[in-house]
């Protein structure tokens, strides 16, 4: 199965440094304001926002050969659904994967938004769901455990699928209920969005087995990942389904291995999640190839600064990945 490679957008600011205090892209974190001292000749207010920068990153991912962008949820960041909408016409080929907090949305309304999105983008929507344990300080204050979030998401996706086409769809669950649901033309009949889900628990794998197209794993060694992928596929087979295994990885890569290692040490003073993703381009590509051999067929990659690194990773790592070494465009 060929590799699908997504690039990650920076949801809450970006910069050349790994120290957030030095980021000068984005307005969220009290970044240093750097007014331009010399009067430019053009006095018009340019009104550029962080959205203009995110559009640039998405365009970089599109032009350099990625298959899609993942737009992460973050408390301080722009809302991924809105970002995805703003990007829908900026990029014309790649898929858009906003990370959605299912528990904040009605399942029917989410399906309606998704159907509209498919019409807007000619079917390029990917829905990336997360269910993490409640953290102290979460602003929403639901206090749901990971297990409860997954149980809710399970029902959410059941309803979401149920109403996608004309219906009538009736459902009564613990968290959601619907009577005679289903969309009318022209909203119905759209291609169903790819569903991505993540998490390492057995319960998370079971949810993906029932609903997801891609299950994204957190960084861990290929050896540790292989049995988890086998477990995922066994669970999916029980449902008569198949699910792609994916890996989310932050890269620190460079032409010069030592330089990458130094940058990696600055990024993760306590050691990188998987040290093998820090290194020279060829090393990192080989490591990603090892994940592919272990069964990973979707990658979600990110590196800072996301704009510049999209090009560097696309130029130096993507062509070294299995099945991607051919010219993306033949010269005349």
């Amino acid at each position: 199965m060929t590799l699908d490679v997504f690039w990650r957008l920076p949801p809450d600011g970006d910069g050349r440094s790994h120290r957030k205090a030095e980021w000068i892209r984005g307005e969220h974190q009290g970044a240093p304001q750097r007014p331009f001292a010399v009067a430019r000749t053009d006095g018009r207010d340019r009104r550029f926002t962080y959205y203009d920068h995110l559009a640039q990153v998405a365009r970089a991912a599109e032009l350099s050969g990625f298959d899609g962008v993942v737009i992460p949820q973050s408390d301080a960041g722009e809302e991924p659904l809105i970002v995805a909408g703003s990007l829908a016409r900026e990029v014309r080929r790649i898929r858009l994967a906003p990370q959605l907090p299912a528990h904040f949305l009605s399942a029917v309304y989410a399906a309606k938004i998704a159907a509209s999105f498919q019409r807007l983008t000619a079917g390029r929507l990917v829905l990336n769901f997360v269910a993490g344990a409640h953290q102290p300080g979460d602003w929403h204050g639901h206090g749901w455990s990971e297990a409860e979030q997954i149980a809710r998401l399970d029902e959410f996706l059941t309803v979401f699928k149920g109403v996608w086409d004309a219906g009538p769809f009736t459902y009564e669950g613990q968290y959601y209920e619907v009577l005679n649901g289903g969309f009318q033309p022209p909203l119905n009949g759209q291609p169903f969005p790819q569903i991505q889900f993540s998490g390492d628990s057995d319960q998370a794998l079971a949810l993906s087995a029932r609903h997801a197209d891609v299950h994204l794993f957190a960084p861990q060694s290929p050896e540790a990942l292989a049995p988890r992928i086998a477990r995922l596929q066994a669970l999916a087979a029980e449902q008569g389904r198949s699910v792609r295994a994916g890996l989310e990885a932050e890269l620190v890569a460079g032409h010069d291995r030592d330089e990458a290692l130094a940058a990696g040490a600055a990024r993760w003073p306590g050691g990188a999640p998987d040290p093998a993703l820090v290194g020279g381009f060829a090393d990192v590509a080989a490591r990603l190839g090892a994940y592919h051999a272990a069964g990973v067929t979707t990658l979600v990659l990110g590196a800072r600064p996301h704009f510049e690194e999209a090009y560097r990773v696309a130029q130096n790592i993507l062509p070294r990945l299995p099945g991607r070494g051919e010219l993306r465009r033949k010269s005349a």
């Binding site: 365009r59 032009l63 350099s64 090009y311 130029q315 051919e326 993306r328 465009r329 010269s331």
Partner: peptide, 21 residues
């Protein structure tokens, strides 16, 4: 210059990749 894998990055939106860049 001669294209090599990755070197045409950016360059997947035919027919005018370099204009896009």
């Amino acid at each position: 210059t001669p294209l090599a894998p990755g070197h045409q990055a950016p360059g997947v939106l035919d027919p005018s990749p370099y204009h896009e860049h």
